[in-house]
Amino acid sequence: MNNGLIIGQYVPGESLVHRLDPRTKITVIFFFVFIVFLANSVVSYSVLTLFALASTFTTRIPIYYILKGLTPVWFLIVFTFILHLIVTNEGNVLINIIGFKIYSGGVIQGFAISMRFFLLILVTSLLTLTTTPIEITDAIEDMLHPLKKVRFPVHELALMMSISLRFIPTLMQETDKISKAQASRGVDFRTGPLKERIKAVVPLLVPLFVSAFKRAEELAMAMEARGYQGGEGRSKLRELKLEKRDFIIFALFIAVVITLFATRNY
Protein backbone atom coordinates (compact mmCIF):
# COMPACT_ATOMS: atom_id res chain seq x y z
CA MET A 1 0.00 0.00 0.00
CA ASN A 2 1.24 3.52 -0.65
CA ASN A 3 0.03 4.64 2.77
CA GLY A 4 -3.27 5.73 1.31
CA LEU A 5 -2.03 8.73 -0.65
CA ILE A 6 -4.51 9.91 -3.28
CA ILE A 7 -3.53 12.22 -6.11
CA GLY A 8 -5.23 15.54 -5.58
CA GLN A 9 -6.49 14.53 -2.15
CA TYR A 10 -7.93 17.46 -0.24
CA VAL A 11 -5.36 19.25 1.92
CA PRO A 12 -7.04 21.27 4.65
CA GLY A 13 -6.08 24.93 4.72
CA GLU A 14 -7.21 28.50 5.26
CA SER A 15 -5.88 30.12 2.11
CA LEU A 16 -7.89 32.41 -0.16
CA VAL A 17 -8.27 29.56 -2.64
CA HIS A 18 -9.59 27.27 0.09
CA ARG A 19 -12.18 29.81 1.17
CA LEU A 20 -13.51 30.64 -2.28
CA ASP A 21 -16.99 29.46 -3.09
CA PRO A 22 -16.64 26.06 -4.79
CA ARG A 23 -18.84 27.32 -7.65
CA THR A 24 -16.35 30.10 -8.30
CA LYS A 25 -13.52 27.60 -8.47
CA ILE A 26 -15.40 25.21 -10.72
CA THR A 27 -16.46 28.00 -13.10
CA VAL A 28 -13.00 29.52 -13.34
CA ILE A 29 -11.38 26.14 -13.90
CA PHE A 30 -14.02 25.15 -16.44
CA PHE A 31 -13.25 28.22 -18.54
CA PHE A 32 -9.52 27.93 -17.95
CA VAL A 33 -9.62 24.50 -19.59
CA PHE A 34 -10.96 26.17 -22.75
CA ILE A 35 -8.73 29.21 -22.87
CA VAL A 36 -5.62 27.07 -22.47
CA PHE A 37 -6.26 26.04 -26.08
CA LEU A 38 -6.36 29.65 -27.23
CA ALA A 39 -2.79 30.45 -26.27
CA ASN A 40 -0.52 30.47 -29.29
CA SER A 41 2.36 32.76 -28.48
CA VAL A 42 5.11 33.16 -25.94
CA VAL A 43 3.36 36.04 -24.22
CA SER A 44 -0.06 34.37 -24.09
CA TYR A 45 1.46 31.21 -22.67
CA SER A 46 3.25 33.31 -20.10
CA VAL A 47 -0.02 34.93 -19.07
CA LEU A 48 -1.61 31.53 -18.48
CA THR A 49 1.42 30.17 -16.69
CA LEU A 50 1.54 33.21 -14.46
CA PHE A 51 -2.12 32.76 -13.57
CA ALA A 52 -1.67 29.05 -12.83
CA LEU A 53 1.44 29.56 -10.73
CA ALA A 54 -0.05 32.48 -8.83
CA SER A 55 -3.10 30.34 -7.98
CA THR A 56 -0.84 27.47 -6.93
CA PHE A 57 1.21 29.64 -4.59
CA THR A 58 -1.90 31.21 -3.11
CA THR A 59 -3.09 27.79 -1.89
CA ARG A 60 -0.02 27.59 0.43
CA ILE A 61 0.15 23.84 -0.18
CA PRO A 62 3.79 22.70 -0.31
CA ILE A 63 4.93 22.70 -3.96
CA TYR A 64 6.81 19.43 -3.59
CA TYR A 65 3.57 17.76 -2.57
CA ILE A 66 1.65 19.07 -5.58
CA LEU A 67 4.44 18.06 -7.95
CA LYS A 68 4.68 14.63 -6.35
CA GLY A 69 0.95 14.21 -6.83
CA LEU A 70 1.50 14.85 -10.54
CA THR A 71 4.07 12.04 -10.82
CA PRO A 72 1.84 9.73 -12.87
CA VAL A 73 1.22 12.46 -15.46
CA TRP A 74 4.84 13.59 -15.79
CA PHE A 75 5.32 10.57 -17.98
CA LEU A 76 2.50 11.67 -20.28
CA ILE A 77 3.85 15.21 -20.47
CA VAL A 78 7.32 14.03 -21.43
CA PHE A 79 5.85 11.52 -23.85
CA THR A 80 3.84 14.27 -25.57
CA PHE A 81 6.96 16.36 -25.90
CA ILE A 82 9.00 13.57 -27.45
CA LEU A 83 6.19 12.60 -29.79
CA HIS A 84 6.06 16.13 -31.17
CA LEU A 85 9.83 16.24 -31.53
CA ILE A 86 9.68 13.16 -33.69
CA VAL A 87 6.66 13.75 -35.91
CA THR A 88 6.84 17.48 -36.59
CA ASN A 89 8.94 18.50 -39.58
CA GLU A 90 8.57 22.26 -39.84
CA GLY A 91 11.18 24.96 -39.37
CA ASN A 92 14.92 24.51 -39.49
CA VAL A 93 16.74 21.29 -38.90
CA LEU A 94 18.36 21.59 -35.49
CA ILE A 95 20.01 18.21 -35.09
CA ASN A 96 20.61 15.56 -37.65
CA ILE A 97 21.53 12.19 -36.22
CA ILE A 98 22.17 9.76 -39.06
CA GLY A 99 19.28 10.97 -41.16
CA PHE A 100 16.98 11.35 -38.18
CA LYS A 101 16.14 15.04 -38.03
CA ILE A 102 14.81 17.16 -35.22
CA TYR A 103 13.23 20.40 -36.42
CA SER A 104 12.91 23.67 -34.52
CA GLY A 105 9.16 23.53 -35.17
CA GLY A 106 9.07 20.22 -33.28
CA VAL A 107 10.74 21.68 -30.23
CA ILE A 108 8.38 24.66 -30.15
CA GLN A 109 5.32 22.56 -30.85
CA GLY A 110 6.32 19.94 -28.28
CA PHE A 111 7.02 22.53 -25.66
CA ALA A 112 3.71 24.33 -26.28
CA ILE A 113 1.59 21.20 -26.15
CA SER A 114 3.23 19.75 -23.04
CA MET A 115 2.92 23.14 -21.38
CA ARG A 116 -0.81 23.13 -22.13
CA PHE A 117 -1.08 19.69 -20.69
CA PHE A 118 0.83 20.63 -17.57
CA LEU A 119 -1.27 23.76 -16.98
CA LEU A 120 -4.51 21.83 -17.44
CA ILE A 121 -3.59 19.19 -14.94
CA LEU A 122 -2.07 21.58 -12.43
CA VAL A 123 -5.11 23.85 -12.35
CA THR A 124 -7.68 21.07 -12.23
CA SER A 125 -5.82 19.36 -9.40
CA LEU A 126 -5.96 22.64 -7.47
CA LEU A 127 -9.73 22.20 -7.31
CA THR A 128 -9.61 18.87 -5.51
CA LEU A 129 -6.61 19.90 -3.42
CA THR A 130 -8.41 22.90 -1.93
CA THR A 131 -12.06 21.85 -1.97
CA THR A 132 -13.66 19.13 0.13
CA PRO A 133 -15.59 16.53 -1.83
CA ILE A 134 -18.75 17.67 -0.05
CA GLU A 135 -18.26 21.26 -1.26
CA ILE A 136 -17.73 20.02 -4.79
CA THR A 137 -20.94 18.00 -4.73
CA ASP A 138 -22.89 20.89 -3.21
CA ALA A 139 -21.61 23.15 -5.95
CA ILE A 140 -22.47 20.68 -8.69
CA GLU A 141 -25.94 20.17 -7.30
CA ASP A 142 -26.45 23.90 -7.22
CA MET A 143 -25.08 24.49 -10.70
CA LEU A 144 -27.12 21.66 -12.22
CA HIS A 145 -30.26 22.96 -10.56
CA PRO A 146 -31.80 24.27 -13.82
CA LEU A 147 -31.81 20.69 -15.14
CA LYS A 148 -34.48 19.85 -12.57
CA LYS A 149 -36.97 21.49 -14.95
CA VAL A 150 -36.43 18.64 -17.38
CA ARG A 151 -36.82 16.08 -14.56
CA PHE A 152 -33.14 15.34 -14.33
CA PRO A 153 -32.52 13.76 -10.88
CA VAL A 154 -30.01 16.36 -9.75
CA HIS A 155 -30.39 15.78 -6.03
CA GLU A 156 -30.13 12.01 -6.32
CA LEU A 157 -27.04 12.34 -8.48
CA ALA A 158 -25.42 14.67 -5.96
CA LEU A 159 -26.30 12.34 -3.11
CA MET A 160 -24.79 9.39 -4.95
CA MET A 161 -21.67 11.38 -5.59
CA SER A 162 -21.26 12.54 -2.02
CA ILE A 163 -21.85 9.06 -0.63
CA SER A 164 -19.26 7.55 -2.95
CA LEU A 165 -16.76 10.27 -2.15
CA ARG A 166 -17.42 9.87 1.55
CA PHE A 167 -16.65 6.16 1.38
CA ILE A 168 -13.50 6.25 -0.72
CA PRO A 169 -11.19 6.78 2.27
CA THR A 170 -13.11 4.17 4.25
CA LEU A 171 -12.73 1.66 1.45
CA MET A 172 -9.04 2.41 1.12
CA GLN A 173 -8.56 1.86 4.84
CA GLU A 174 -10.50 -1.35 4.64
CA THR A 175 -8.44 -2.52 1.67
CA ASP A 176 -5.27 -1.78 3.60
CA LYS A 177 -6.50 -3.63 6.67
CA ILE A 178 -7.70 -6.71 4.84
CA SER A 179 -4.67 -7.00 2.60
CA LYS A 180 -2.49 -6.83 5.71
CA ALA A 181 -4.58 -9.50 7.41
CA GLN A 182 -4.31 -11.79 4.37
CA ALA A 183 -0.60 -11.07 3.94
CA SER A 184 -0.21 -12.27 7.53
CA ARG A 185 -1.87 -15.50 6.46
CA GLY A 186 0.73 -16.00 3.77
CA VAL A 187 -0.85 -14.32 0.74
CA ASP A 188 1.70 -12.68 -1.51
CA PHE A 189 0.22 -9.82 -3.53
CA ARG A 190 3.48 -8.61 -5.00
CA THR A 191 5.53 -11.48 -6.37
CA GLY A 192 4.91 -14.81 -8.05
CA PRO A 193 3.39 -15.72 -11.40
CA LEU A 194 0.51 -13.62 -12.74
CA LYS A 195 -2.00 -16.42 -12.26
CA GLU A 196 -1.13 -16.71 -8.58
CA ARG A 197 -1.37 -12.99 -8.11
CA ILE A 198 -4.80 -12.85 -9.68
CA LYS A 199 -5.89 -15.65 -7.38
CA ALA A 200 -4.53 -13.65 -4.45
CA VAL A 201 -7.12 -10.96 -5.14
CA VAL A 202 -10.07 -13.16 -4.16
CA PRO A 203 -9.30 -13.16 -0.40
CA LEU A 204 -9.13 -9.38 -0.69
CA LEU A 205 -12.22 -8.71 -2.80
CA VAL A 206 -14.69 -10.98 -1.02
CA PRO A 207 -14.28 -9.36 2.41
CA LEU A 208 -14.31 -5.90 0.78
CA PHE A 209 -17.62 -6.56 -0.95
CA VAL A 210 -19.11 -8.11 2.15
CA SER A 211 -18.26 -5.07 4.22
CA ALA A 212 -19.33 -2.61 1.50
CA PHE A 213 -22.77 -4.22 1.30
CA LYS A 214 -23.06 -4.25 5.06
CA ARG A 215 -22.14 -0.58 5.19
CA ALA A 216 -24.64 0.29 2.48
CA GLU A 217 -27.39 -1.46 4.36
CA GLU A 218 -26.50 0.25 7.62
CA LEU A 219 -26.34 3.63 5.93
CA ALA A 220 -29.74 3.16 4.30
CA MET A 221 -31.20 2.18 7.63
CA ALA A 222 -29.64 5.14 9.41
CA MET A 223 -30.91 7.55 6.75
CA GLU A 224 -34.41 6.17 6.97
CA ALA A 225 -34.32 6.29 10.75
CA ARG A 226 -33.54 9.98 10.52
CA GLY A 227 -36.42 10.62 8.16
CA TYR A 228 -34.60 11.08 4.89
CA GLN A 229 -37.04 11.16 1.99
CA GLY A 230 -35.16 12.71 -0.87
CA GLY A 231 -34.55 16.24 -2.04
CA GLU A 232 -38.07 17.72 -1.99
CA GLY A 233 -38.41 20.37 0.69
CA ARG A 234 -35.16 19.48 2.38
CA SER A 235 -33.27 22.42 3.83
CA LYS A 236 -29.50 22.71 3.66
CA LEU A 237 -26.93 22.67 6.43
CA ARG A 238 -24.27 24.35 4.33
CA GLU A 239 -25.62 27.24 2.26
CA LEU A 240 -23.41 28.29 -0.60
CA LYS A 241 -22.98 32.05 -0.69
CA LEU A 242 -20.91 34.19 -3.03
CA GLU A 243 -18.71 36.64 -1.13
CA LYS A 244 -16.85 39.75 -2.19
CA ARG A 245 -13.71 37.68 -2.76
CA ASP A 246 -15.54 35.55 -5.31
CA PHE A 247 -16.46 38.59 -7.38
CA ILE A 248 -12.90 39.86 -7.16
CA ILE A 249 -11.61 36.53 -8.46
CA PHE A 250 -14.15 36.56 -11.30
CA ALA A 251 -13.02 40.07 -12.24
CA LEU A 252 -9.40 39.00 -12.10
CA PHE A 253 -10.08 36.00 -14.24
CA ILE A 254 -11.91 38.08 -16.85
CA ALA A 255 -8.89 40.39 -16.91
CA VAL A 256 -6.68 37.36 -17.55
CA VAL A 257 -8.94 36.23 -20.39
CA ILE A 258 -8.88 39.71 -21.99
CA THR A 259 -5.09 39.89 -21.67
CA LEU A 260 -4.87 36.50 -23.26
CA PHE A 261 -6.91 37.58 -26.27
CA ALA A 262 -4.87 40.76 -26.53
CA THR A 263 -1.56 38.93 -26.44
CA ARG A 264 -2.38 36.17 -28.87
CA ASN A 265 0.00 36.08 -31.82
CA TYR A 266 2.64 38.11 -29.95
Partner: peptide, 30 residues
Protein backbone atom coordinates in the same frame (compact mmCIF):
# COMPACT_ATOMS: atom_id res chain seq x y z
CA UNK B 1 4.97 -14.57 8.80
CA UNK B 2 4.55 -18.29 9.37
CA UNK B 3 6.40 -17.99 12.66
CA UNK B 4 4.65 -14.85 13.89
CA UNK B 5 0.86 -15.19 13.81
CA UNK B 6 -1.18 -12.01 14.08
CA UNK B 7 -4.83 -11.84 15.10
CA UNK B 8 -5.97 -8.38 14.06
CA UNK B 9 -8.65 -6.21 15.58
CA UNK B 10 -12.02 -7.59 14.38
CA UNK B 11 -10.37 -10.51 12.56
CA UNK B 12 -13.78 -11.77 11.39
CA UNK B 13 -13.53 -9.19 8.57
CA UNK B 14 -10.87 -11.30 6.89
CA UNK B 15 -13.07 -14.37 6.28
CA UNK B 16 -13.80 -15.09 2.63
CA UNK B 17 -13.97 -18.83 1.91
CA UNK B 18 -17.07 -20.89 1.17
CA UNK B 19 -16.76 -23.01 4.27
CA UNK B 20 -15.34 -22.54 7.72
CA UNK B 21 -12.97 -25.42 7.17
CA UNK B 22 -11.51 -23.97 3.99
CA UNK B 23 -11.02 -20.63 5.66
CA UNK B 24 -9.13 -22.14 8.57
CA UNK B 25 -7.00 -24.14 6.13
CA UNK B 26 -6.16 -21.07 4.05
CA UNK B 27 -3.17 -19.91 6.13
CA UNK B 28 -1.46 -23.29 6.58
CA UNK B 29 -1.98 -24.03 2.85
CA UNK B 30 -0.24 -20.82 1.90
Amino acid sequence: RSRVGVVFQYPEHQLFEETVKKDIAFGPEN
